[in-house]
């Protein structure tokens, strides 16, 4: 099923350029209304293979895709695949930091808030989460740069150093964009955990466990958190998927040379093969993530298992 989806996504991305009215090559070259040079347009058409029949283009595209070939960048003729492979780990690294942070903060805080519903802790943490959700990542990132880098000068404003060259500096540079994404995500995890725990605590089987005389702590771990994890995992995974594209803004703010940064520059340069390649890779990751959630669901909930 997922294979079919990936195929459909690849087809849609391929078709996208043909769905736009007008000549795609002309469209890609037209900047600010000025008519492009006909010779250049013709060159681009040949380069993109747009002069050949649609079906032939499609077959060619699919065949190259199967070999992992995403074509050449229009800017410097470098292979798109290589560039993506170089940059993808950096983006995933950001997401990993964000996910770890959000779970480490959101899960315990959400559980504690639900257990002490209506307490000062619950109110304060819920309000904080509401605020965290309202601050867009690029606003938070920009403000963090201003505060920690420009004013306090604790950390560099951004950039990237390979882990192999200077591990400490790498982690330091990673922490700011990672936490920027992590804060919003932690708010999401917090809210979901709190709601799920509150819901599960009212279930009959929690009452059964209490009726058995099981200790409160054990009920919490074995019956409440275990079941509450399911919606939390789903929501976290879906948000991570959305973030696969959403790191664009954070990478831009912190000058982090990840995949999304590449996408922005590709979009600005109207580098069609590169944009298609990146969109395709991220979408495939997105589909894979959804599949992983389904599998995880099976592990967590025996009713879903076949």
């Amino acid at each position: 099923m997922s294979i079919v989806l990936v195929w459909v996504v690849a087809t849609v991305v391929f078709m996208a350029i043909h769905l736009v009215p007008g000549d795609p090559a002309e469209l890609l070259l037209s900047q600010g209304g000025a008519a492009p040079d006909p010779g250049v347009v013709a060159d681009l058409r040949t380069q993109l293979g747009l002069d050949r029949p649609l079906l032939a283009q499609y077959a060619d595209y699919m065949l190259r895709l199967l070999h992992g070939d995403l074509g050449q960048s229009m800017q410097d003729d470098s292979p798109v695949t290589a560039e993506i492979v170089r940059r993808l780990p950096r983006t995933l690294e950001l997401l990993l930091v964000a996910a770890l942070f959000s779970v480490a903060v959101g899960l315990p805080a959400g559980t504690a808030a639900a257990m002490r519903r209506g307490s000062a802790f619950d109110r304060i943490s819920s309000a904080t989460a509401g605020l965290a959700l309202a601050v867009p990542v690029f606003v938070l990132g920009t403000l963090m740069v201003m505060l920690f880098a420009q004013m306090l000068r604790w950390v560099p404003a951004g950039g990237y150093v390979a882990f192999a060259r200077d591990p400490l500096q790498h982690l330091l540079l990673l922490s700011m964009p990672g936490l920027t994404i992590g804060v919003g995500l932690a708010a999401v995890v917090f809210r979901m955990t709190r709601a799920a725990v509150l819901d599960v605590m009212l279930r009959d089987y929690v009452r059964t466990a209490r009726a058995k005389g099981v200790a409160q702590r054990r009920i919490l771990l074995r019956h409440v958190v275990r079941t509450a994890l399911m919606p939390v995992v789903t929501v976290l995974a879906l948000h991570l998927g959305t973030l696969l594209g959403g790191t664009v803004l954070v990478e831009y703010v912190f000058n982090w040379p990840g995949l999304s940064g590449l996408l922005v520059s590709a979009v600005n340069a109207r580098d069609y093969p590169e944009v298609v390649g990146i969109v395709l890779v991220i979408s495939v990751l997105f589909v894979a993530l959804n599949l992983a959630v389904d599998i995880l669901y099976g592990v967590l909930d025996p009713r879903v298992r076949r």
């Binding site: 989806l5 849609v12 350029i17 736009v20 998927g241 594209g245 959403g246 979009v267 969109v279 979408s283």
Partner: peptide
């Protein structure tokens, strides 16, 4: 709709902005 959901929102937006 499922196909549309395969694209993270910002990405979908960027893809269209590239074209249009």
């Amino acid at each position: 709709i499922d196909v549309l959901l395969c694209f993270p929102p910002l990405l979908l937006a960027l893809l269209v902005v590239t074209l249009a």
